[in-house]
Design a protein around this nucleic acid. Sequence first.
DNA 1: GCCTGCTACCTTGCTGTGCATGGTACCTGG
DNA 2: CCAGGTACCATGCACAGCAAGGTAGCAGGC
Lengths: 127, 127
Amino acid sequence: MTDHDPTDKGGGPAPADGAIATQLRKGVLEYCVLALLRDGPRYGVELLQELGRFHALATSQGTIYPLLSRLRRAGLADTFLRDSASGPSRRYYTLTAEGRAALAEFTTLWPAFRVAVDHVLAPGETP
Amino acid sequence: MTDHDPTDKGGGPAPADGAIATQLRKGVLEYCVLALLRDGPRYGVELLQELGRFHALATSQGTIYPLLSRLRRAGLADTFLRDSASGPSRRYYTLTAEGRAALAEFTTLWPAFRVAVDHVLAPGETP
DNA sequence: GCCTGCTACCTTGCTGTGCATGGTACCTGG
DNA sequence: CCAGGTACCATGCACAGCAAGGTAGCAGGC
Protein backbone atom coordinates (compact mmCIF):
# COMPACT_ATOMS: atom_id res chain seq x y z
CA MET A 1 0.00 0.00 0.00
CA THR A 2 1.29 3.39 -0.81
CA ASP A 3 -1.35 5.31 1.08
CA HIS A 4 -0.49 6.31 4.61
CA ASP A 5 -2.78 7.62 7.29
CA PRO A 6 -5.11 10.41 6.22
CA THR A 7 -3.30 12.57 8.79
CA ASP A 8 -0.25 12.54 6.54
CA LYS A 9 -0.29 15.83 4.64
CA GLY A 10 2.74 14.95 2.56
CA GLY A 11 5.11 16.49 5.03
CA GLY A 12 3.99 19.99 4.21
CA PRO A 13 2.99 22.32 7.03
CA ALA A 14 0.01 24.37 5.92
CA PRO A 15 -0.12 28.16 6.32
CA ALA A 16 -3.69 27.86 7.70
CA ASP A 17 -4.17 31.59 8.21
CA GLY A 18 -6.84 33.43 6.28
CA ALA A 19 -7.22 33.79 2.56
CA ILE A 20 -6.16 37.40 2.85
CA ALA A 21 -2.69 36.47 4.11
CA THR A 22 -2.41 34.17 1.09
CA GLN A 23 -3.00 37.06 -1.26
CA LEU A 24 -0.53 39.21 0.65
CA ARG A 25 2.22 36.68 0.07
CA LYS A 26 1.76 36.90 -3.69
CA GLY A 27 4.78 38.41 -5.34
CA VAL A 28 6.54 38.99 -2.03
CA LEU A 29 7.46 35.43 -1.23
CA GLU A 30 9.70 35.19 -4.26
CA TYR A 31 11.86 38.08 -3.10
CA CYS A 32 11.87 36.93 0.51
CA VAL A 33 13.38 33.68 -0.72
CA LEU A 34 15.97 35.64 -2.68
CA ALA A 35 16.77 37.59 0.49
CA LEU A 36 17.27 34.39 2.48
CA LEU A 37 19.47 32.99 -0.28
CA ARG A 38 21.67 36.06 -0.04
CA ASP A 39 22.88 34.89 3.38
CA GLY A 40 24.17 31.60 1.95
CA PRO A 41 23.03 28.39 0.24
CA ARG A 42 19.72 26.95 1.44
CA TYR A 43 17.62 23.93 0.53
CA GLY A 44 13.84 23.64 0.23
CA VAL A 45 12.83 22.43 3.66
CA GLU A 46 15.29 24.77 5.30
CA LEU A 47 13.68 27.73 3.54
CA LEU A 48 10.28 26.56 4.72
CA GLN A 49 11.52 26.59 8.29
CA GLU A 50 13.12 30.02 7.99
CA LEU A 51 9.97 31.49 6.46
CA GLY A 52 7.92 29.74 9.13
CA ARG A 53 9.67 31.84 11.78
CA PHE A 54 7.53 34.71 10.53
CA HIS A 55 3.91 33.67 10.80
CA ALA A 56 2.93 36.03 8.00
CA LEU A 57 5.32 34.39 5.52
CA ALA A 58 4.79 30.72 6.41
CA THR A 59 4.04 28.61 3.36
CA SER A 60 4.04 25.00 2.21
CA GLN A 61 6.06 22.71 -0.05
CA GLY A 62 3.53 23.08 -2.84
CA THR A 63 4.49 26.74 -2.97
CA ILE A 64 8.22 26.64 -2.36
CA TYR A 65 9.26 23.99 -4.87
CA PRO A 66 7.57 25.49 -7.93
CA LEU A 67 8.92 28.86 -6.79
CA LEU A 68 12.48 27.54 -6.62
CA SER A 69 12.15 25.90 -10.02
CA ARG A 70 10.94 29.21 -11.39
CA LEU A 71 13.91 31.05 -9.90
CA ARG A 72 16.27 28.59 -11.49
CA ARG A 73 14.58 28.76 -14.86
CA ALA A 74 14.61 32.56 -14.73
CA GLY A 75 18.33 32.52 -14.05
CA LEU A 76 17.96 34.15 -10.65
CA ALA A 77 19.26 31.16 -8.72
CA ASP A 78 21.68 28.31 -9.24
CA THR A 79 21.60 24.89 -7.59
CA PHE A 80 23.78 21.99 -6.56
CA LEU A 81 23.24 18.68 -4.76
CA ARG A 82 24.94 17.80 -1.51
CA ASP A 83 24.65 14.67 0.64
CA SER A 84 23.06 15.02 4.05
CA ALA A 85 24.60 13.65 7.25
CA SER A 86 21.31 11.90 7.95
CA GLY A 87 18.74 11.53 5.20
CA PRO A 88 18.50 11.95 1.44
CA SER A 89 20.56 14.46 -0.57
CA ARG A 90 19.58 18.08 -0.44
CA ARG A 91 19.30 20.47 -3.38
CA TYR A 92 20.87 23.77 -2.35
CA TYR A 93 20.07 27.08 -4.05
CA THR A 94 22.39 30.06 -4.40
CA LEU A 95 21.93 33.54 -5.83
CA THR A 96 23.20 34.44 -9.28
CA ALA A 97 24.22 37.96 -10.26
CA GLU A 98 20.81 38.36 -11.86
CA GLY A 99 19.16 37.19 -8.67
CA ARG A 100 21.09 39.72 -6.67
CA ALA A 101 20.00 42.46 -9.09
CA ALA A 102 16.34 41.42 -8.83
CA LEU A 103 16.57 41.46 -5.05
CA ALA A 104 18.13 44.92 -5.17
CA GLU A 105 15.31 46.17 -7.39
CA PHE A 106 12.71 44.82 -5.00
CA THR A 107 14.52 46.31 -2.03
CA THR A 108 14.30 49.67 -3.79
CA LEU A 109 10.59 49.40 -4.57
CA TRP A 110 9.39 47.90 -1.31
CA PRO A 111 9.69 50.94 0.98
CA ALA A 112 7.57 53.13 -1.31
CA PHE A 113 4.95 50.43 -1.52
CA ARG A 114 4.95 49.90 2.24
CA VAL A 115 4.56 53.62 2.90
CA ALA A 116 1.77 53.93 0.34
CA VAL A 117 -0.29 51.18 1.97
CA ASP A 118 0.37 52.62 5.43
CA HIS A 119 -0.80 56.00 4.21
CA VAL A 120 -4.00 54.68 2.65
CA LEU A 121 -4.83 52.61 5.71
CA ALA A 122 -4.36 55.59 8.02
CA PRO A 123 -7.73 57.20 8.80
CA GLY A 124 -8.61 60.75 7.81
CA GLU A 125 -7.48 60.64 4.24
CA THR A 126 -9.82 63.32 2.91
CA PRO A 127 -7.98 66.63 2.53
CA MET B 1 -17.58 53.29 -37.58
CA THR B 2 -17.15 52.34 -34.02
CA ASP B 3 -13.38 52.24 -34.03
CA HIS B 4 -11.64 55.34 -32.75
CA ASP B 5 -8.03 56.32 -33.16
CA PRO B 6 -5.51 53.68 -32.14
CA THR B 7 -4.25 56.23 -29.61
CA ASP B 8 -7.44 55.73 -27.62
CA LYS B 9 -6.59 53.34 -24.80
CA GLY B 10 -10.13 53.15 -23.51
CA GLY B 11 -9.62 56.03 -21.15
CA GLY B 12 -7.58 53.98 -18.72
CA PRO B 13 -4.21 55.23 -17.50
CA ALA B 14 -1.79 52.34 -17.38
CA PRO B 15 0.38 51.56 -14.33
CA ALA B 16 3.40 51.05 -16.60
CA ASP B 17 5.83 50.30 -13.79
CA GLY B 18 7.59 46.94 -13.60
CA ALA B 19 6.04 43.50 -13.34
CA ILE B 20 7.19 43.28 -9.76
CA ALA B 21 5.02 46.21 -8.69
CA THR B 22 2.10 44.44 -10.33
CA GLN B 23 2.63 41.40 -8.15
CA LEU B 24 2.95 43.60 -5.08
CA ARG B 25 -0.47 45.08 -5.70
CA LYS B 26 -2.08 41.67 -5.67
CA GLY B 27 -4.33 41.25 -2.68
CA VAL B 28 -3.49 44.71 -1.35
CA LEU B 29 -5.40 46.79 -3.87
CA GLU B 30 -8.70 45.34 -2.72
CA TYR B 31 -8.18 46.54 0.85
CA CYS B 32 -6.77 49.89 -0.23
CA VAL B 33 -10.05 50.47 -2.05
CA LEU B 34 -11.95 49.48 1.08
CA ALA B 35 -9.85 51.96 3.03
CA LEU B 36 -10.65 54.75 0.57
CA LEU B 37 -14.33 53.85 0.74
CA ARG B 38 -14.23 54.25 4.50
CA ASP B 39 -13.78 58.01 4.08
CA GLY B 40 -17.01 58.30 2.12
CA PRO B 41 -18.70 57.22 -1.12
CA ARG B 42 -16.47 57.10 -4.20
CA TYR B 43 -16.97 56.19 -7.83
CA GLY B 44 -14.69 54.26 -10.15
CA VAL B 45 -12.72 57.00 -11.86
CA GLU B 46 -12.39 58.88 -8.59
CA LEU B 47 -10.81 55.83 -6.97
CA LEU B 48 -8.39 55.54 -9.88
CA GLN B 49 -7.30 59.13 -9.30
CA GLU B 50 -6.91 58.66 -5.54
CA LEU B 51 -4.85 55.50 -6.01
CA GLY B 52 -2.85 57.28 -8.69
CA ARG B 53 -1.59 59.72 -6.06
CA PHE B 54 0.57 56.88 -4.81
CA HIS B 55 2.72 55.70 -7.68
CA ALA B 56 3.01 52.25 -6.16
CA LEU B 57 -0.76 51.72 -6.14
CA ALA B 58 -1.69 53.24 -9.50
CA THR B 59 -3.84 50.92 -11.58
CA SER B 60 -6.24 50.99 -14.53
CA GLN B 61 -9.92 50.65 -15.26
CA GLY B 62 -9.51 47.02 -16.25
CA THR B 63 -8.51 46.35 -12.68
CA ILE B 64 -10.78 48.64 -10.70
CA TYR B 65 -14.13 47.76 -12.24
CA PRO B 66 -13.90 43.99 -11.84
CA LEU B 67 -12.58 44.62 -8.33
CA LEU B 68 -15.57 46.80 -7.45
CA SER B 69 -17.98 44.24 -8.89
CA ARG B 70 -16.30 41.61 -6.76
CA LEU B 71 -16.66 43.72 -3.64
CA ARG B 72 -20.34 44.18 -4.33
CA ARG B 73 -20.91 40.50 -5.02
CA ALA B 74 -19.04 39.59 -1.83
CA GLY B 75 -21.26 41.90 0.18
CA LEU B 76 -18.37 44.12 1.22
CA ALA B 77 -19.64 47.19 -0.63
CA ASP B 78 -22.96 48.66 -1.63
CA THR B 79 -23.64 50.97 -4.56
CA PHE B 80 -25.99 53.65 -5.78
CA LEU B 81 -26.23 55.81 -8.87
CA ARG B 82 -26.07 59.58 -8.76
CA ASP B 83 -26.23 62.12 -11.58
CA SER B 84 -23.13 64.13 -12.30
CA ALA B 85 -23.10 67.90 -12.74
CA SER B 86 -21.27 67.42 -16.02
CA GLY B 87 -21.15 64.01 -17.64
CA PRO B 88 -22.86 60.64 -17.31
CA SER B 89 -24.16 59.25 -14.01
CA ARG B 90 -21.65 57.87 -11.56
CA ARG B 91 -21.93 54.63 -9.64
CA TYR B 92 -20.85 55.33 -6.08
CA TYR B 93 -19.64 52.61 -3.73
CA THR B 94 -19.98 52.57 0.06
CA LEU B 95 -18.77 50.18 2.75
CA THR B 96 -21.10 47.64 4.31
CA ALA B 97 -20.65 46.31 7.84
CA GLU B 98 -18.96 43.27 6.33
CA GLY B 99 -16.66 45.51 4.34
CA ARG B 100 -15.69 47.40 7.44
CA ALA B 101 -14.96 44.10 9.20
CA ALA B 102 -12.78 42.90 6.30
CA LEU B 103 -10.89 46.18 6.34
CA ALA B 104 -10.38 45.86 10.09
CA GLU B 105 -9.03 42.33 9.65
CA PHE B 106 -6.59 43.50 7.00
CA THR B 107 -5.52 46.45 9.15
CA THR B 108 -4.72 43.95 11.89
CA LEU B 109 -2.70 41.63 9.65
CA TRP B 110 -0.82 44.21 7.64
CA PRO B 111 1.66 45.47 10.29
CA ALA B 112 2.89 41.95 11.03
CA PHE B 113 3.31 41.29 7.34
CA ARG B 114 5.13 44.56 6.78
CA VAL B 115 7.50 43.92 9.68
CA ALA B 116 8.17 40.37 8.50
CA VAL B 117 9.21 41.50 5.03
CA ASP B 118 11.32 44.30 6.48
CA HIS B 119 13.06 41.81 8.71
CA VAL B 120 13.78 39.34 5.93
CA LEU B 121 15.06 42.06 3.64
CA ALA B 122 17.41 43.37 6.31
CA PRO B 123 20.93 41.96 5.80
CA GLY B 124 22.66 39.73 8.34
CA GLU B 125 19.81 37.36 8.97
CA THR B 126 21.87 34.36 9.99
CA PRO B 127 21.90 33.95 13.79
C1' DG C 1 17.36 -8.91 6.43
C1' DC C 2 12.97 -6.43 6.47
C1' DC C 3 9.64 -3.12 7.77
C1' DT C 4 8.32 1.40 9.71
C1' DG C 5 9.03 6.25 9.96
C1' DC C 6 11.35 10.39 8.87
C1' DT C 7 13.42 13.59 5.66
C1' DA C 8 13.48 15.61 1.30
C1' DC C 9 12.22 16.30 -3.33
C1' DC C 10 8.81 17.04 -7.14
C1' DT C 11 4.18 17.30 -9.94
C1' DT C 12 -0.71 18.26 -11.03
C1' DG C 13 -4.87 20.85 -11.02
C1' DC C 14 -7.45 24.68 -8.94
C1' DT C 15 -8.49 29.35 -7.64
C1' DG C 16 -8.04 34.06 -7.51
C1' DT C 17 -6.15 38.60 -8.98
C1' DG C 18 -4.34 42.26 -11.79
C1' DC C 19 -4.11 43.79 -16.53
C1' DA C 20 -4.63 44.98 -21.67
C1' DT C 21 -8.02 45.57 -24.81
C1' DG C 22 -12.27 46.77 -26.67
C1' DG C 23 -16.87 48.38 -26.47
C1' DT C 24 -21.07 51.18 -24.90
C1' DA C 25 -23.69 55.14 -23.08
C1' DC C 26 -24.29 59.86 -21.54
C1' DC C 27 -23.62 64.86 -21.47
C1' DT C 28 -21.77 69.22 -23.39
C1' DG C 29 -20.38 72.62 -26.89
C1' DG C 30 -19.88 74.12 -31.45
C1' DC D 1 -26.31 67.02 -35.22
C1' DC D 2 -21.90 65.58 -34.52
C1' DA D 3 -17.18 65.58 -32.08
C1' DG D 4 -14.94 64.97 -27.62
C1' DG D 5 -14.64 64.00 -22.99
C1' DT D 6 -16.41 61.36 -18.98
C1' DA D 7 -17.78 57.17 -17.05
C1' DC D 8 -19.13 52.50 -17.02
C1' DC D 9 -18.56 47.46 -18.10
C1' DA D 10 -17.01 42.79 -20.23
C1' DT D 11 -13.61 39.47 -22.22
C1' DG D 12 -9.49 36.83 -22.34
C1' DC D 13 -4.95 36.25 -20.62
C1' DA D 14 -0.90 35.40 -17.43
C1' DC D 15 0.87 34.20 -13.26
C1' DA D 16 1.42 33.02 -8.20
C1' DG D 17 0.18 30.44 -4.05
C1' DC D 18 -1.91 26.28 -2.46
C1' DA D 19 -3.84 21.51 -1.44
C1' DA D 20 -3.18 17.00 -2.49
C1' DG D 21 -0.67 13.28 -4.08
C1' DG D 22 3.49 10.77 -5.35
C1' DT D 23 8.59 9.08 -5.19
C1' DA D 24 13.00 8.02 -3.14
C1' DG D 25 16.79 7.57 0.30
C1' DC D 26 18.50 6.86 5.09
C1' DA D 27 18.08 5.12 10.02
C1' DG D 28 16.65 2.26 13.76
C1' DG D 29 13.85 -1.69 15.78
C1' DC D 30 12.48 -6.40 15.38
